[in-house]
């Protein structure tokens, strides 16, 4: 097998063909959550719902754990997983905190702190970007 489009970026796995193959069943289940009736069916009997979508053992375990890093490792795609997270009322800060091993407050503070990043050198004199 050829080298897939792997990322050397720390903390980042690109959703490439290899992940798309690995995660197909899990992502298909998550895609079904676009419909409210499917979300209810999942909540009513998660195990039966996972069997219907033929999740792998790794995927089912990741779903049970509700750990985003485990779901990603099992081939989950961020865009589809977001629908799974939505079922449990988790927003992007909850998920960010969980993945980075910190509290929601600390995660949000880190986002705010991005304002202290240095400006692009030209930003202050060429065409000003207001912010």
């Amino acid at each position: 097998m050829n080298a897939p489009n792997r990322s050397a970026i720390p903390g980042t796995a690109l959703f490439d063909g290899e992940m798309a193959r690995k995660g197909y069943a899990l992502n298909k289940m998550c895609f079904s959550f676009n419909e409210a009736a499917n979300r209810q069916a999942f909540l009513a009997d998660p195990e039966a719902y996972m069997r219907k979508y033929r999740l792998t053992a790794q995927q089912a375990a990741a779903v049970r754990s509700r750990q985003v890093l485990a779901l990603l490792e099992a081939g989950g795609n961020a865009y589809y997983l977001a629908k799974f997270a939505g079922i449990f009322g988790l927003n992007m800060q909850d998920i960010g905190a969980q993945q980075t091993g910190t509290t929601k407050e600390a995660f949000m503070a880190r986002l705010q702190a991005a304002n202290q990043q240095p400006d692009w050198p030209a930003a202050s004199h060429s065409t000003p970007v207001s912010h």
């Binding site: 097998m1 050829n2 897939p4 489009n5 063909g17 290899e18 193959r21």
Partner: peptide
């Protein structure tokens, strides 16, 4: 043949 499929896709 998913290996060749993804190779062609890339």
């Amino acid at each position: 043949c998913p290996d060749l499929s993804w190779h062609i896709i890339r």
